[in-house]
């Protein structure tokens, strides 16, 4: 098992390194201007490029970048928040995004699981239909549309919640964005849980367990849910990454200083900020690869059969 874990971690690190290099190479090789061109003339830009070492060979630049990045220095902004170290800006942004995304993940998974289990237990009845309709709406309507709806009704017409994000009242002002972000996760999880549980309920081993006299919570939680969880984890993984990082539009609408907004600002500003694009790209990719790795390893915990076959593959 340890060997398997190490191998997977090593592979993930290599993948990440390749991606970072590709990103770096693309950003440096492609034509484009990292500086706000309207405010600087050609000589200033040329000086700036020389100062940042943008004219050196790509490999030299990459080595310089990666050694600094490993020490936690991602450089300064070139056009966005000019001259301020990226780390300072990013740490606030990551804090905001992760807290709101984290609440959304927890809320979405918990409520989604509950809904799915309830629907599967009341199969074919009113609750089941309700769950189906709910999950269809949740999947079809983008989260930012929900946010616009909530914002319009509960912050504008009934001014109960703040209209824009306010970091000094974090708990209160994260209700609307977290709620709207969680809806997609919630409905996806609910749908998958319901379908998986219904399938597992029909399986022979659950029938056997039931005929042996097991019933109620023990049967549902230990025999049905555990076996239904494996596919659910697969669905959940990309959702988690999306929520932690890709709440882009939601952040834009609600005025949250998060990494999504930072990315949008970096690519839609006057000059596209290379350093921000790179740093955020690395962050996104690392998160994505990390979560995928975690899920792969989690399978082994949830389903011993996979652990065995993974070992077999090793041998």
């Amino acid at each position: 098992m340890l060997k398997y874990v190490l191998k997977r971690v090593g592979l993930a690190l290599v993948t990440l390194l390749i991606i970072v290099f590709l990103l770096f190479w693309l950003v440096r090789v492609m034509p484009g201007n990292p500086f706000p061109s309207e405010r600087m003339n050609d000589i200033q830009i040329a000086n700036k490029r020389a100062e940042m070492g943008l004219d050196d060979p790509v490999l030299v630049q990459f080595w310089r970048y990666i050694t600094r990045a490993l020490q936690g220095d991602f450089g300064n902004g070139t056009s966005l928040y000019y001259g301020v170290p990226i780390n300072t800006v990013m740490s606030t942004a990551i804090g905001n995004s992760f807290r709101i995304g984290g609440i959304a993940v927890l809320l979405g998974t918990a409520v989604g699981l509950l809904l799915g289990i309830t629907a599967a237990l009341h199969r074919g009845k009113f609750l089941d239909g309700f769950c189906t309709v709910f999950s269809i709406i949740g999947v079809c309507v983008p989260s930012y549309v929900f946010l616009i709806f909530l914002q319009y009704n509960f912050a504008f017409r009934i001014p109960f919640f703040p209209y824009f994000f306010d970091a000094s009242r974090f708990a209160f002002s994260s209700v609307l964005p977290s709620l709207s972000l969680s809806l997609f996760t919630m409905s996806t999880i609910a749908r998958f849980t319901r379908n998986e549980m219904v399938e597992v309920f029909d399986s022979d081993y659950v029938r056997l367990a039931a005929s042996k006299g097991l019933h109620g919570r023990r049967l549902v939680l230990r025999h049905v849910l555990r076996n239904a969880l494996i596919p659910i984890v697969t669905v959940l993984a990309p959702l988690v990454v999306d929520l932690l990082t890709g709440a882009l539009v939601v952040e834009k609408i609600y005025g949250i200083n998060g990494i999504g907004k930072l990315m949008v600002d970096a690519i839609t500003g006057e000059g596209i900020d290379y350093n921000y694009v790179l740093a955020l790209g690395i962050l996104y990719s690392a998160l994505y690869i990390g979560v995928m790795l975690l899920v792969d390893l989690l399978y082994g915990v949830l389903d011993p059969r996979i652990r065995v076959s993974a070992k077999g593959e090793e041998a």
Partner: peptide
Amino acid sequence: SVPRLVIVSVLAI
């Protein structure tokens, strides 16, 4: 493993 947003932002350059 390259998130779509990263691709978009590199393309936008």
